[in-house]
Every structure is written in structure tokens, then in C-alpha cells.
């Protein structure tokens, strides 16, 4: 019994002698404190960009949303529940079939090569800014009656009649999801390669989009290819046209080109680094990295 008591005494003494968490030894997490750099130099240094006198200069500005004593807007109106998370919603800037046809007619897009987001952004006629939650292109049905090009196009969002319009001309259309990092790489590949980082592997679509991208009726890239073929036939019967035979097409090799679900650029695999100066592709050799980028 005394032996145990001795141990507890020792333990208590040990604990008593240990350093305590107190105000004098508490520290913020590394990087949590941001230092404000006062503006310097002849142009900006005199008032440090804060103007002359008053609340601005003395940092005594009223709090955000305060309207000088008036019942403020943010309290006057109740929350709009249907706007919840609207700033996080995925956006798909539209591109009409008319615009696409025009790009092809003017030679801005080559229909003999597969068309993806990079091709469209390179025309400089279509803009997609991932910093504004733009996740790619939404191909719309404007000009559906005059669309005549045979293309292998990859879009991020589309509708049934647009799919029918593309497939009627013997083309191929795929709905493909890219996560925001991949979109950044796709809209400006040169800028991406200048960062000197490996091509990322594309993530899977989020929970609320998985249904669309696994649906053969929308030609989802995660759908079963056999079911997609069935859906092609079904759609042709619905809209009253004949599905052309691909294997006899002179552009068969181009039309059957398709990216891997993890792939971002045609001909480039995730994990590779493109060096524009040396005009070389650098690939990881170690097994661990290879496995990561191929999984």
C-alpha cells in the first residue's frame, strides 16, 4: 500500500514541476499572425495610403455594415434561404452551337482534332475564369438548326437536343468534369507549365454532380460505354435520324480519342512535367510517385 502511495506522490510531484499552459507561454500557430506592411516610398510613404486625417488615418472607421445609426440593411432584411451557398455554386459559362459553328467556319477551331476546353479558350473568343468558380463550358442549343460540323467535342455541361445535334452530323460529344485545379491548367496551359509543377490528376465529380456525369443520356465520361452506345441509338430514334457508322469514317481515329478520367491534357499523363524551355517532358521514375499519379 505504501509502495503505491509513494508512486502517486512521485507522480504528483512530477506533474507539479512540469511547465503549465499559461498566458506567458501561449503562442499562436505558425503563420496565423499577418504583419501589415506600411506603404513606403516617395509616392506612397507620406500618409501610407490612408489619406489625410480623419477616421481613415486614425483607424477609427465604423464597423462593417454600419450605416451611421440607420437601421442597417443586413439587419433590416431577413436571410434569403434560397441564396444559401450561391457564392460556391459551380458556374458553366455558355457557348452556343452557333458560336462553335462560327469558330469552325472562321478557322479559329480545327474540327479535325478533338475539341476540349483548352481549344475553346485558345480561340480567345470564349472566356472561362476558374477564379470565379467557372468549371468549364456549357454548350447551349442556340443555332441548333444550322450546326453542321462533325466534331469530337468535350463539354462540361449540355442538354439532350445539343447532343442530338452533334451526333446527327456524325460527331461525338462527352460530358466531362474537371476540378478547379485542372480547369486552371486547361484554360491557360502555358501559364500552368511556367509554374514548373507536375500535371495534376483530375479529381472525381462532387456528390451533387456524380449523377450527371454517370448518366449515359448526357454522355457522361463515367458512364458505361455500352449504355452510351444504346443511348445514342435511342436518341437517334427519338429525333429521327440515322446513327452513322464510326468504324468506316475516315476520321475514325480522331473521333474515338477520349481522355482517361484522371487525364487532363491529350497525350499527357498526370505526374508529368512539361518544360517549355528545353522542350522536354519529365516523368517521375520512382515507384511511389508513379503509383500515386496512376491511381
Amino acid at each position: 500500500m505504501s509502495y503505491i502511495a509513494g508512486i502517486t506522490d512521485k507522480a504528483l510531484k512530477l506533474i507539479a514541476s512540469m511547465p503549465r499552459v499559461a498566458l506567458n507561454n501561449l503562442k499562436g500557430l505558425p503563420g496565423s499572425k499577418k504583419t501589415f506592411q506600411r506603404r513606403r516610398g516617395r509616392e506612397k510613404g507620406s500618409k501610407h495610403g490612408r489619406g489625410d486625417k480623419g477616421q481613415g488615418a486614425r483607424m477609427t472607421l465604423p464597423r462593417l455594415g454600419f450605416e451611421g445609426g440607420q437601421f442597417p440593411f443586413y439587419l433590416r432584411f431577413p436571410k434569403e434561404r434560397y441564396y444559401e451557398g450561391h457564392h460556391m455554386k459551380r458556374q458553366y459559362p455558355p457557348l452556343s452551337l452557333l458560336q462553335l459553328q462560327r469558330m469552325i467556319d472562321l478557322g479559329r477551331v480545327n474540327p479535325d482534332e478533338p475539341i476540349d476546353l483548352t481549344t475553346l479558350c485558345n480561340t480567345k473568343l470564349y472566356k472561362c475564369s476558374p477564379e470565379h468558380h467557372h468549371y468549364g463550358v456549357n454548350l447551349t442549343d442556340e443555332g441548333i438548326d444550322i450546326f453542321q460540323a462533325k466534331v469530337n467535342i468535350e463539354v462540361q455541361w449540355t442538354t439532350e437536343n445539343v447532343i442530338a445535334a452533334v451526333e446527327r452530323n456524325g460527331g461525338v460529344i462527352t460530358s466531362r468534369f474537371y476540378d478547379i485545379q485542372s480547369v486552371m491548367a486547361l484554360v491557360n496551359p502555358e501559364k500552368f507549365f511556367q509554374r514548373g509543377i507536375p500535371i495534376p490528376k483530375c479529381k472525381l465529380p462532387p456528390e451533387d454532380a456524380i449523377e450527371y456525369y454517370t448518366d449515359p443520356h448526357f454522355r457522361g465520361y463515367l458512364a458505361d460505354p455500352e449504355k452510351v452506345a444504346e443511348a445514342r441509338l435511342e436518341l437517334a430514334q427519338k429525333y429521327g435520324y440515322e446513327v452513322p457508322d464510326f468504324s468506316k469514317d475516315p476520321l475514325y481515329e480522331m473521333l474515338k480519342q477520349k481522355k482517361d478520367p484522371r487525364q487532363i491534357f491529350f497525350g499527357l499523363a498526370p505526374g508529368w512535367v512539361v518544360n517549355l524551355k528545353d522542350r522536354v517532358i519529365l516523368k517521375p521514375k520512382a515507384q511511389e510517385w508513379k503509383e500515386y499519379y496512376h491511381s
Binding site: F193, Q194, G196, K277
Partner: peptide
């Protein structure tokens, strides 16, 4: 920054 430098100047 080192990655950027490699991307700009390559092997050299």
C-alpha cells in the same frame, strides 16, 4: 520559386 526558375531556364 525554384520550380518557376527551372520552368523558365530549364536544365541550364
Amino acid at each position: 520559386i525554384l520550380r518557376k526558375i527551372y520552368a523558365k531556364y530549364g536544365k541550364s
